[in-house]
Write a protein that binds this DNA or RNA. Structure first.
Lengths: 234, 234
DNA sequence: TGGATGACCAGATTCGAAATTTGGTCATCC
DNA sequence: GGATGACCAAATTTCGAATCTGGTCATCCA
């Protein structure tokens, strides 16, 4: 309701917050959460340490916002692609794109892989659940499956819960990378294709959806993405 | 060629080795590799510590044999099922069964998940590769895919390497368990079914193989398993 | 006068050396 | 001559001192 920060402070405030987040991001990737100090973040952002605390209550909330932003942006890119091309709303395409996003962006990759090397204490919530859950990924996935099913893009022979679980497991497997096969040399785009093919074969309906249906489905997928993005930015 | 141990020592020797391995297994699961001491193993096996070293050169080689044995046995169960029913040689069925084996047996699960909590220093080879690779899982998987392709049980439209990678990633994903979905309540058998369905849809040919073909394929799968098992027991 | 700052503090983390433990050996025993 | 456990060097753990870091707030400008 109240835009407390931007309202209570001069316009320089917003840009400053961005500088702080940028510095935090750099340091997070270079050193990992644990080694990053608030002092160093402030130094890089060329402000005093106390100033950081004018924007966020604690170090954790700062980084929590950073993670939310990264995911927010990733979902934004995904939404843009769907807006441009309805076919990108197909389950296999969406999962493929999520994989690529998370492969390219080290922060989101860390989030989805639960990489405690980078995320440190952020990797799991106080309750012991992976961050990715906390960030509402499950809710989004469940909503997407619902949409895909209603529009006939996904089989309805299996229970939705099973399909959700399957997508999550397969996606996680591809992001983690298989253990037995030394596959470092396989290019990300190619892995994404293999993932897409797997999802398509396992879950999509065999009939090619007609353009009108696709467009309607795309609208609902976009709505789901919008809702998820909304949740991410408090 | 030479059965060194059982030949050079009294018959009690073999049974004693078994006792040591059993003790080591118990302790491994209870405490994890790092906390297990050779002294404690000897105590549980009711022998002197020095005696352990009459059987294995180091603590590591003892546990390496333990891991090899567990995998050896798991593959043995798999082979038995295929011998009993050729249909169990189908890709989806084999992967399904491997998953179940590795879910039920905490040791093999630790191996495939690279669980350093249990495996400690054993989780990765000195070269930094996961144990599962060292144990020849990749070679076996590659051989199986080759067999499945030649017998027409698996599509040949995609390169074998891609199929191997896909199986590994999907299997790993299901063993690790998805991160976003809190799926502890899904029963192992049900997860195995979902995995089987995924593999079947993504990789198997759509035509139902006839019984004769299946039986021949089963023979080759059994041969591959036999070879892998042979490699495991030096 | 209110936003920015960095000295400051308590609690957490790291360090390091002493104390303990443990993998591996081998003289001794049966 | 096979089995053993005392023994040793090396690794690990302990634990208190020293250092560091998240967070505060009195002070300082603009």
């Amino acid at each position: 309701m109240t835009l407390d920060r931007s309202a209570a402070a001069p316009p320089a405030d917003h840009a400053r917050a961005e500088r702080i987040l940028a510095a935090a991001r750099e340091l997070l990737l270079a050193w990992g959460y644990k080694r990053v100090t608030v002092d160093e973040i402030a130094r890089r952002a060329r402000i005093g340490k106390g100033t950081v605390y004018l924007h966020w209550k604690t170090k954790q909330t700062l980084f929590a916002e950073l993670l939310r932003r990264e995911l927010h942006e990733a979902l934004g890119v995904l939404a843009a692609e769907i807006r441009e091309n309805s076919a990108a709303a197909l389950p296999s395409k969406v999962v493929r794109e999520v994989f690529l996003q998370q492969t390219r962006n080290p922060v989101t990759r860390a989030i989805h892989a639960g990489d405690s090397e980078i995320l440190g204490a952020l990797a799991v919530t106080p309750a012991g659940r992976p961050v990715i859950q906390e960030l509402g990924f499950h809710t989004l996935l469940a909503r997407l499956v619902e949409v895909w099913r209603t529009h006939g893009l996904m089989t309805v022979t299996a229970p939705a819960a099973d399909q959700i679980y399957t997508i999550d497991a397969v996606l996680t497997g591809f992001i983690t990378g298989g253990l037995a096969v030394p596959g470092e040399d396989v290019r990300p785009d190619h892995r994404a294709d293999l993932l897409g093919h797997t999802i398509k074969a396992a879950l999509e309906t065999s009939v090619t959806p007609d353009e009108a249906v696709l467009r309607e489905a795309a609208q609902d997928v976009l709505a789901a993405l919008g809702a998820a993005r909304g949740t991410l930015m408090t």
